[in-house]
């Protein structure tokens, strides 16, 4: 729905691998693109304003940070309460992703997904208990799915061609 201009696409392509780590990173990007710092700043502001770019930020490596255990916890939460509770769960330090998704009954009654991280599986289970306490009686059932194997992992990136 939101077509990118060629200049916006070039800006994303120039920075998606990483913003230069220097005192004036936007000026550095502008230099490589042959444009002005002001142009880069205003394009980023516009792209963030329109939601195409969520933020310029760091992605942590959970594993390297000692969080070697993780589990996808899933919860069947009362529809009337799920958004309020989901926000609280999403704010917990040990939750990296928290989403509301549709149920797939009868096999899958869960509508709230929260990825839990810990230094061990026991710690993840402890955190799961903390989430259960927060959800309280609004939660009817829950489960946790540990990953056994990564079968495929490719980053999602903007392709170079305009497709």
């Amino acid at each position: 729905m939101n077509a990118l201009s060629a200049q916006d696409r070039d800006l994303i392509l120039a920075t998606q691998a990483g913003l230069p780590l220097c005192a004036e990173p936007f000026a550095a990007v502008a230099m490589t693109m042959g444009t002005s710092e002001q142009d880069v700043l205003s394009r980023f502001q516009t792209l963030i304003g329109s939601g195409v770019i969520r933020r310029i930020a760091a992605a942590p490596n959970h594993y390297k940070l000692g969080m070697i255990a993780n589990g996808m916890s899933v919860w069947d939460v009362d529809d009337a309460a799920v958004d309020k509770l989901g926000q609280i769960i999403g704010e917990l330090d040990f939750v990296s992703h928290c989403y509301r998704r549709p149920r797939a009954l009868p096999l899958w009654p869960y509508n709230l997904f929260a990825m839990l991280h810990g230094t061990s599986r026991a710690e993840v289970e402890d955190k799961r208990t903390q989430v259960a306490q927060i959800l309280g009686s609004a939660c009817r059932a829950s489960d946790i799915l540990y990953s056994k194997r990564i079968l495929k992992k490719t980053g999602v990136r903007l392709s170079k061609r305009g497709d």
Binding site: A3, L4, Q16, R54, N61, K64
Partner: peptide
């Protein structure tokens, strides 16, 4: 970044906003 405590520092693109 060099020690891989961070994997990346840059724009987070919302592919959904791009269609």
């Amino acid at each position: 970044l060099e020690t891989a405590a961070l994997t990346r520092f840059g724009p987070f693109i919302d592919a959904e906003a791009l269609g």
